[in-house]
Design a protein around this nucleic acid. Sequence first.
DNA 1: AAAGATAATGGAAACCATTTTCATTTAGGA
DNA 2: TCCTAAATGAAAATGGTTTCCATTATCTTT
Lengths: 157, 157
Amino acid sequence: MGHGHGKGPGQWCHGKFRGCGYRMTTGREAVLDVLSQANEHLSAEDIYMKIHPVYPAIGLTSIYRTLDILVNIGLIHKFDFGHGRARYELTEGPKGKRHHHHLVCTGCGRVIDYTDFIDEEVALLKKTEEGLSKKYNFRIDNHLIQFYGLCDACNRS
Amino acid sequence: MGHGHGKGPGQWCHGKFRGCGYRMTTGREAVLDVLSQANEHLSAEDIYMKIHPVYPAIGLTSIYRTLDILVNIGLIHKFDFGHGRARYELTEGPKGKRHHHHLVCTGCGRVIDYTDFIDEEVALLKKTEEGLSKKYNFRIDNHLIQFYGLCDACNRS
DNA sequence: AAAGATAATGGAAACCATTTTCATTTAGGA
DNA sequence: TCCTAAATGAAAATGGTTTCCATTATCTTT
């Protein structure tokens, strides 16, 4: 699984876990490892599949539990692209990708990350957030932007 | 259920249905009626609950089937606010509300529709869409914007 | 208006991602 | 090393949504 040999992402999150009162275990480390290695949005089962060959003792249940914690801690984001299963992705961190938004193909289900226009979008979002926060007294701490349509491949057929 | 007495939304969609090869039935009309009367985002069961007292013969299954068709035809939008059930809302139409985006409270689950800043947002979105369409050859026909955070009530407690 | 072809329906069962239960194991402070 | 609470896996439960299938209803054709 290409463990970082010493300074993997486990190191990075050890503190985060402990700080929140959680214990660090093999399974949790494995989940973080897989997530930081991956460049796609993984489902719980995807993660299970990658971990299983290496640590057959770790069950799907624990993975769900770990993902839940990670979402609450803020280390990962949980997405729903409308395919009946949640997908998870590391929050932008030291090794994290840049903040991005999504293009979701309604034909084949493919999800494209894009960072183009992100700056303008984020600038507008910030302004919008301020306005909305004030008007509705709503403390905003996250946003979701997705475009739906047909991808290149689906357009041709 | 406050049927429109003659020129309800059923009238509006009759043609749409027929044009797509679907037959108009009591159940389908009832679903459209409920959706056009409602100002909130309804789940399949919400709709069932409203229809049942009036038309006890109509089952939940049919409602799911009708909603599916309506989504495909483009008459309604399907949303997932992360509460484990889909919610449906009439697409902006003759009687439809203005296009809007959502504020989702992660505390209590409340969803607020906002139209403030919509113009600026939509303008930017249009520009972004053009760029993305070109770059990825992606035909965009919909977008989703949601802000997550804590609502006024949840902020206080 | 009646008949026929085919779409639509309801109820029950199936589905399937996610959660819960519970007895057992483990991490990490004492 | 011991101890206690946290974490775990396996199996069962959950709950929204779909599928199956025999029956019914719609709409076109006479």
